[in-house]
Design a protein around this nucleic acid. Structure first.
Length: 279
DNA sequence: AGCTCTTCCTGAAAGC
DNA sequence: TGCTTTCAGGAAGAGC
């Protein structure tokens, strides 16, 4: 499922293949996949893709036409993919957006999302600013240590929900939260504000290291993640705890990885992430 | 404020 | 084999 690293890989591929290309057609299959701006769809025809950004787990495409700019924001949700036309799609009835381009390396783009946890928004600049302000907190790869530390200490609450709280820190989902917490040696239920600063510091660097490493691997293809060109990410091979229930702890501490079903499938080592150490 | 529960949604996998 | 049930989970909203 797409989280920050997967969204980043998607954004990079779209940028490389389609920036500078002109939209020749834009089709949306069902109105309810659009969160905002459905009526502005015709505007996009004839516009040029100028820029591709990632906000949290979403991908934002900036189009320009004459002096005006508009955006298409695609929330990837659980199962959302942006795919180039050459990639075969197993369940084509779940393609909800088709854009065709001229003048790019690729001739088009499709938004495919079977479970439809995720929407499309067609926004002008103020609309995008509002959308961003409402939905996205700090980017984990751009946040300063000071801001990260303030985030941890100023909020009461448990660590894992905080890491996954998009309005605080945008882009981390269940898979990467589990991987980060294991590598930081922290249990999901510790109170974030009780962590000593040395632990916060370690968490900060581990978070960035895990996300950067995952981006370099092309993301994690756990269920059905494919990059726009159809390639799979390789970071799954470096997962240490996610999906490893019952397997020996990778730290060779002698315990096995456990899974808490009640907690959004928390995977952890009960010794290396002993919650009593930091409670 | 922050946690839990529910809803959305479909395909894959497990169960019978 | 083939049908039915369960599960997966990001985000929003309700209720506590």
């Amino acid at each position: 499922m797409p989280e920050l690293p997967e969204a980043e890989v998607v954004a990079c591929q779209l940028r490389a293949a389609l920036v500078g290309a002109q939209v020749t057609d834009c089709w949306v299959g069902r109105k309810d996949i659009v969160r905002e701006g459905f009526s502005s769809l015709p505007w996009y025809i004839g516009s040029v893709l100028q820029q591709v950004d990632r906000y949290g787990k979403s991908v934002a495409l900036r189009f320009v036409k004459k002096q005006a700019a508009r955006y298409l924001v695609a929330e990837l949700g659980m199962t959302g993919l942006l795919l180039f036309p050459s990639v075969p799609i197993k369940h084509p009835q779940h393609v909800h957006l088709r854009m065709t381009f001229t003048g790019g390396r690729e001739a088009g783009l499709r938004y495919w999302n079977p479970r439809r946890f995720g929407r499309l928004s067609f926004l002008d600049q103020p609309g995008l600013d509002q959308y961003r302000a409402r939905r996205f907190g700090y980017d984990p790869l751009a946040v300063s240590f000071g801001d990260f530390q303030r985030l941890m200490t100023s909020r009461r609450g448990r660590l894992k929900p905080l890491l996954m709280h998009q309005q605080s820190l945008a882009g981390i989902g269940n898979i990467y939260a589990n991987e980060i917490l294991f590598r930081a040696g922290l249990h999901s239920n510790v109170m974030a504000c009780r962590l000593p600063s040395t632990r916060v510091e370690r968490l900060y660097y581990v978070t960035q290291a895990v996300l950067r490493s995952a981006i370099a691997c092309g993301g994690s293809s756990v269920k059905d993640f494919f990059a726009p060109d159809g390639t799979e990410g390789q970071f799954k091979q470096r997962h240490l705890v996610y999906g490893k229930e019952g397997q020996p702890c990778p730290n060779h501490c002698g315990r096995t990885i456990r899974r808490l079903q009640s907690e959004r499938s928390a995977f952890f080592c009960p010794r290396c992430q002993d919650p009593r150490k930091w409670r």
